[in-house]
Design a protein around this nucleic acid. Structure first.
Length: 865
DNA sequence: ATACATACC
DNA sequence: TACTGGTATGTAT
């Protein structure tokens, strides 16, 4: 044990950099010499420095662990041991040796493909990749220590004659497809791990195979030709039943031990044109490998074992072009596992190995001996895994490949420090991701930006939206903000990047949207049929000129999103079993509640709170805002195309839903869905109130109204006014306030003084922080009109997204905030709102609580109670 | 929910 | 000159 400790410290930085001779084909080479070259090539580089740093981190982790270990008492250990024993017994009882799992792994796959297609390479050391990075190498090259994940320039130093062939993934995919066709014949449910690797469950095949006639177990040499190769036709003269000869990858000095090949069954028939395979597992697997080779001229190795974990280890055992079967007995398994180095186990990598080594654990037998200790030092998941490994246990069924959970793209480049270039690169990445998303018809809520600076330090910044996105503009809107935040945080220094990546995750389940979308669309076509009100119409881009000629007063406009939220509340739980999603209003309400609480304590100081204001403006006001927004965002560069494609969701909404209701002098009640023949919002509000009190029968359905209804309107109003007067809105804002009959102030939140003083390091010279409560992004300017405009659009966009309006060009949410800023600003974190919005028992507020004719804004206010 | 680390190919 | 890119998952906050 003490050795382990010293070891981990003594070797120190070496372990991250040094040659990893874990892989096949690396036996008996001059490790020291190779390591020396690797070190010399690396030393002093930024990469190396970063590796040192990370090595130190690991060492600290280990030290911490050792300290913990030192504190463990005899008694604790005993107890832990007992616990482990219990669990081991439990696991032992469920041990299943009845399955036959096969792990197949193509030998040096990419390299083999390239050699096959360019036979001159056959006898040369070669690798696939670039000077910067190699994907794989052939076995010649491995003799020099050249291996996957090694940069080409270092490989060149190890082996100056190394030929580096660029990757050609399309080709590898094609070949992989051919191989998979064969896999499928042995297990239609096989699971591929990568292009060159798969797990198969042979159990069923074997059962059937027992009764197969020879004819079904007979396979011709070159039975089918390959589509990819140039010179496919191999003559039977070469077709000695030693697959070795066909393989472009194998070399005399490679192990090439294929025990089965020497078996009596592998006899070529007359002329060597075909071969008959037996009915045993080995024969079946050998047959499969044979067929792979005949079809692709590439060899594969395989492991046969009672579970996945063991099969994987076994496939490495006789690589290349070999196979190994671990008998399905407990004894064989336990024996096998005893001598197995922990590092060989999938899931135990460099770091875990090092930590285990520090505890004196290098083989799985040690694992078994130390499980008590490990259960105290490692997380539950970790030690459970280790315990299973130590018992030779693993999954005995091959899980279906689950749906993907994320999609990303990233790129490494020479130092990139200019903001414009960073932004345009960011957009490019978003374009790529969006394209892929489209291909798979996915939408996701979380966008993550990944940055690596020239010192190799990696950063990720993520933001989760309340709705799922998929298009370039949507993704870029978020990614750009995340990026800008980082740029701002670093300024005046530039970000010196070497890599940027964009990832999208938190996909919505596909059955989550369609039925919902129908029902909303249904609602959007109230009473009278709108000629353009089809679902298709919703997706159309709308002509702004046309729209601006409509005089929608904001009543119905403002109401729509709300109604739709209601609808959504009602629909979503029915469609999916997801936990109920929070509407914007629920979140807003939760924030409000918290602020009120906060207010109660800070009111005396006369500090208003930082404000969130959502103002519903009419079209004219929006137009004004739009131009000023553009002016304000001049720093968004030409790459920010969303600006140009912009279509106001509200406008789109109105025209497609027939919600220019003022024209027809009726409004749609979001509660009863009936047309109310009035344009007087007070009348309309009274109607809604009535409906709401009636609706108390089904409180669930009206959560939104419930939660909003107990907002203190007066207080609310006051805050709004404070904000308005404090903020000094620009001209056009004033203008719109005066002229527009309807403005909605929805949420007041926070105080900019507080904000600026409590977090001077960010945004301080930019005035107040306005955070869109829908998309959670902050805004570039403190112009309330702009902000309101943004929220307006966001709000409606959220709804439109649910309508499947992918073709709508989205708005470009203004910049910049991250969760830290939120926290520091003591805004309510999203999580906190969850609990609070659960109360849905108090139906609606009595009409008396209504706003009392405080002017236009008030009227709409009421809408959002 | 975020950030970061580890792992695999 | 030069140390990847894509995905999943675990751990910590």
């Amino acid at each position: 044990m003490e050795n382990g400790v010293n070891n981990s410290k003594g070797e120190g930085f070496l372990s991250r950099m040094a040659l990893n001779d874990n892989k096949a084909g690396m036996e008996g080479l001059d490790r020291d010499k190779i390591n020396k070259i690797i070190m010399e090539s690396s030393k002093g580089s930024r990469f190396y420095e970063n590796e040192l740093k990370r090595e130190q981190q690991v060492n600290q982790r280990i030290e911490k662990m050792m300290l913990q270990k030192a504190q463990i008492t005899e008694q604790q250990l005993k107890k832990a041991q007992a616990e482990v024993e219990r669990m081991a017994t439990e696991l032992e009882r469920s041990r299943d040796l009845s399955r036959v799992i096969v792990h197949v792994d193509m030998d040096a796959f990419y390299a083999a493909v390239e050699i096959r297609d360019c036979p001159e390479l056959k006898d040369k050391p070669m690798a696939v990749g670039s000077m910067s990075m190699l994907s794989t190498s052939n076995y010649h090259a491995r003799k020099y220590g050249v291996r996957a994940a090694m940069p080409g320039f270092i490989a060149k130093k190890l082996c100056p004659n190394l030929v580096i062939v660029p990757t050609n993934f399309a080709k590898y995919r094609a070949v992989s497809g051919e191989v998979r066709e064969i896999f499928a014949e042995y297990d239609p449910h096989f699971q591929s791990v990568s292009l060159d690797e798969a797990y198969l469950d042979f159990t069923d095949h074997l059962e059937q195979r027992q009764s197969w006639p020879e004819s079904l177990r007979t396979h011709r040499f070159h039975a089918s030709s390959t589509a990819t190769g140039e010179e496919q036709i191999k003559l039977p003269q070469e077709a000695v039943p030693e697959e070795k000869d066909l393989s472009p990858v194998l070399f005399d000095d490679s192990p090439s031990s294929s025990p089965c090949l020497s078996g009596p069954e592998g006899v070529g028939a007359a002329g060597g044109a075909f071969e008959v395979f037996g009915t045993s597992v080995e024969e079946a697997v050998r047959e499969m490998r044979f067929r792979i080779e005949q079809k692709t001229m590439l060899t594969a190795s395989a492991g046969i074992a009672p579970n996945m974990m063991l099969a994987k280890v076994c496939s490495d055992k006789n690589k290349p072009n070999g196979q190994y079967r671990l008998p399905s007995t407990r004894e064989a398994v336990m024996d096998f596992v005893q001598n197995l180095p922990v590092r060989k186990v999938s899931g135990i990598g460099k770091v875990s190995e090092k930590m285990l080594n520090a505890l004196g654990i290098s083989s799985c037998s040690h694992l078994g001996q130390q499980m008590g200790l490990l259960s105290l030092l490692f997380s539950e998941t970790a030690w459970h895994h280790l315990l299973q490994v130590s018992l030779g246990l693993g999954s005995t069924f091959i899980p279906r490949h689950e749906e993907r959970k994320s999609m990303s793209t990233e790129r490494t480049f020479k130092e990139l420090s200019k903001v414009e270039e960073q932004l345009s690169l960011c957009r490019e990445l978003c374009e790529d991701v969006a394209e892929d998303m489209k291909e798979e018809g996915l939408k996701g809520k979380t966008v993550t930006l990944k940055l690596k600076n020239v010192s190799f330090e990696v950063k990720t910044r993520a933001l989760t939206l309340p709705y799922a996105v998929a298009t370039v503009d949507e993704i870029f809107a978020v990614a750009k903000d995340l990026l800008k935040t980082e740029i701002d945080n670093e300024s005046p220094q530039p970000l010196r990047l070497r890599l940027m990546g964009v990832r999208i995750s938190a996909f919505v389940s596909s059955d989550d949207k369609k039925p919902l979308q129908r029902s909303i669309i249904g609602f959007l076509q109230p009473g009278k049929t709108d000629s353009s009100g089809s679902s298709q119409g919703m997706n159309q881009k709308l002509d702004k000129e046309h729209l601006s000629n409509h005089s929608f007063q904001t009543g119905p406009l403002a109401c729509l999103p709300l109604v739709q939220k209601c609808q959504r509340q009602e629909e979503v739980p029915r469609q999916t079993c997801d936990q109920p999603k929070q509407s914007f209003f629920q979140r807003a309400h939760a924030k409000r509640l918290q602020l009120q609480a906060a207010n109660a304590s800070t009111q005396e100081e006369g500090l208003g709170e930082k404000a969130f204001v959502i103002t519903y403006t009419d079209t004219c006001a929006q137009k004004g805002v739009e131009s000023s927004t553009k002016a304000n965002k001049s720093n968004c560069t030409a790459s920010d195309l969303s600006e140009n494609d912009y279509v106001s969701p509200i406008e789109a909404h109105a025209s497609t839903s027939g919600c220019g209701a003022t024209v027809s002098e009726s409004l749609t009640c979001p509660v009863c869905f009936r047309q109310v023949e009035t344009t007087d919002l007070n009348v309309f509000n009274r109607h809604i109130d009535q409906c709401l009190s009636d609706a108390s029968i089904k409180p669930n359905q009206w959560t939104v109204f419930d939660t909003e209804s107990d907002l203190d309107l007066e207080n609310h109003q006051k805050e709004c006014e404070e904000v308005e007067s404090n903020r000094v809105p620009p001209q056009e804002d004033q203008h719109s306030l005066e002229n527009d009959s309807l403005q909605t102030v929805l949420l007041i939140n926070g105080d900019n003084k507080t904000a600026t003083s409590s977090q001077p390091q960010s945004h301080n010279d930019k005035g107040p922080i306005l955070i869109c409560p829908v998309c959670q992004l902050s805004q570039d300017s403190d112009d309330l009109t702009i902000f309101n405009h943004h929220v307006d659009l966001c709000l409606n966009r959220e709804v439109l997204h649910e309508l499947g309006g992918q073709t709508l060009s989205p708005i470009n949410p203004p910049s910049v905030i991250n969760s830290k800023a939120l926290d520091r600003g003591r805004l309510l974190p999203t999580q906190a709102s969850k609990g609070k919005t659960k109360r849905r028992d108090s139906p609606s507020s009595p009409p008396s609580k209504k706003a009392k004719g405080l002017g236009p804004r008030n009227t709409i206010d009421k809408f959002f109670r």
